[in-house]
Amino acid sequence: MMLVTAFVLAALYQGNAITQMKWRVLIVALGFAAYFALTSLSATFFAFIVFAAFIVSSGHATPFEGRAATREKGWVKWTLIITALIFFEFFVLMPLFAVFIEALRKGWGTYFEAFTLPDTRAAIGLTFLAAAIAVTLNLVFGIAAAWAIAKFEFRGKHFLTTLIDLPFSVSPVIAGLVFVLVFGAHGWFGPWLEEHDIKIVFALPGIILATVFVTFPFVARELIPLMQAQGKEEEEAAVVLGANGWKTFWYVTLPNIKWALLYGAILCNARAMGEFGAVSVVSGHIRGETNTMSLYVEILYNDYQFATAFAVASLLAVLALVTLVIKTTVEYFADRSRTQDNPES
């Protein structure tokens, strides 16, 4: 029955009644929601595959793909589309829905109760605080590093570029361990820190350090290619016209990189909020004090508090989805400003 409906919807859609993309999306969402409510999960997924296949196959026929002469055979097309969709369902969509379903298994009451626990609130607060500080610091570091690499020639530039990528290639656990070895009780600065009553490891500073380290490349990586492509002529023009370094940066460089900067910050933020490995090593897992959301979810899960664990996890998932929406919006505007810059390209 649901299969039939999917076909009807798809046929209706193919009948050219609805052509705009947003309507397509809306219909998919509506159909999807309806099945979600009415039938079991697996059936929903199957219906979605069928339906989405129609959407994909009929949507956005560019002149090239649209012509029979340049199109692959039908079965090739369908095999590829369905394979891709099955992967997408099992590896992205299903886990995402599983989180929400598990979180709501015992009803909305239990779900919201999870967020009233002081430990949950502390974890959420800590996550936001650590992410906010890490993103801010990395904005500053990222701009400084990208500015140096893109606009100046100096010895050791390649080394610096490689160094920026280090956090990507090092395991987060090792990153965390490094900070424990340096700042921990038995580490290099441990005794000195203890003497002066400064806590870094197993406290907020350690969590921030670990997060900053892990998310360091995002902003710089995003900016360097753009700033290199833009060259330094505009900055030179500004300096010749009498602008000092700060004004040149503020009035000339920054407006040219604002979208990339925002994009880098969003990616950085997403990673900062979701970071587990490095933070896990330095945090010490003190409930209500040094547990971020990711760590808290793990602890709850190990304590068999599944509903609460999934509730917190669902919040993380929502944050991720919100990030995606913001990211797409930023991409859209960045794209638009780029086409404004070069209308001919």
Partner: peptide, 15 residues
């Protein structure tokens, strides 16, 4: 910035 020169670039370098 203190030399008081006007510089015109090949590729304009307009902001």
């Amino acid at each position: 910035r203190e030399r008081q020169v006007g510089f015109v670039f090949q590729h304009y370098a307009l902001f």
